[in-house]
Design a protein around this nucleic acid. Structure first.
Length: 296
DNA sequence: AAGCGAACCTGGCTGC
DNA sequence: TGCAGCCAGGTTCGCT
């Protein structure tokens, strides 16, 4: 599962393959993923040209020439693989090869492009989903209407965080994972950002706000760390754990840079800190943190 | 309204 | 080897 950096990486893999190309056919292995696919899904896509590919939160958006948007979410185990078996395919497709370890039983949607490229959506747990939305309705679509700010955009500021957090009693970790506040953070990068900011994951979210809902020191410390950890992860091509791979089957490397995630029992990496990384369950998810240097 | 837990679904790993 | 149990990157739903 892909959090923002992984989705961004997949998006960058798909963009050059899809952009400007015409969808020749769409084959569905089943009528639903997490939710039923839209009515006449395949027919509505066939013959459409993809204008561009972008990302919003953890969604990949393919903008089509009939002013509709194909929105795709990878859930926990969704992945795209790209094949360019057609000899006539343009050069840039050459580096992509189909089928790195994906179990074909979970190939649910296959897009064939007019130029011969084949893009396959594989999702073992089927928590992913796809939707077709008219461009002008995107902002009101249930999937998108309540999304919070992009963490790498200018809207994520200590002031924004403080205003949203003021008075909240829930854990700072749950607050940061709430897509209605910040759209794109997930379990890994919240753990990593809290570690970098030296913030205890169980801190009440309200501590991000000082008097008058102004940013606290914690909020001023946290926001730059959120942006930094996401930016670094994107540069590394995301993190590769279990089910996630790039569209070309290769791996991201940011998991090698995790400071706390998945490091239960190992020494804290903070210079001079004698702590050990601990794991606890918050909201049904594992939180990794150092109980010694993540104090306030 | 906010804040929990459960549910969705499958596979991989651990330990008896 | 077999099998039960636990764990997994996300999101929605329904009940306090």
């Amino acid at each position: 599962m892909p959090e923002l950096p992984e989705v961004e990486t997949v998006c960058r893999g798909l963009a050059p393959v899809l952009s400007g190309q015409i969808i020749a056919s769409v084959k569905l292995a089943r009528p639903d993923l997490r939710f039923p696919l839209p009515d006449r899904f395949a027919q509505r896509l066939e013959g459409r040209r993809v204008r561009s590919v972008s990302r919003r939160a953890k969604y990949i958006l393919a903008h089509l020439d009939d002013d509709s948007v194909l929105a795709m979410h990878l859930g926990m185990t969704g992945r795209f693989t790209i094949a360019a078996k057609d000899k006539a395919a343009p050069e840039p497709l050459g580096e992509y090869v189909y089928g790195h370890g994906a179990d074909a039983r979970h190939d649910h949607v296959v897009f064939r492009l007019k130029n011969g490229a084949v893009i396959t959506y594989n999702d073992a747990r089927r928590f992913g989903y796809m939707s077709l939305i008219a461009s002008q309705d995107l902002a009101h679509d249930p999937f998108f209407a309540n999304l919070g700010v992009e963490p790498l955009g200018d809207d994520l500021t200590p002031e924004y965080v403080a205003a949203k957090a003021a008075g909240r009693k829930s854990d700072i970790k749950a607050f940061l994972m709430d897509q209605r506040i910040i759209a794109g953070l997930g379990n890994i990068y919240v753990c990593e950002a809290l570690y970098r900011a030296r913030l205890k994951p169980t801190l009440p979210a309200g501590r991000l706000a000082a008097r008058g809902a102004k940013p606290s020191d914690a909020a001023r410390r946290l926001v730059p760390h959120i942006k930094a950890v996401l930016t670094e992860a994107i540069l590394a091509g995301g993190s590769t754990l279990r089910d996630y791979q790039h569209t070309d089957g290769s791996s991201g490397s940011f998991q090698e840079s995790f400071s706390v995630y998945g490091r239960e029992g190992e020494p804290c990496l903070t210079p001079g800190c004698k702590g050990t990384v601990r794991r606890k369950t918050q909201g049904g998810r594992s939180t990794f943190f150092c109980g010694v240097c993540q104090r306030t």
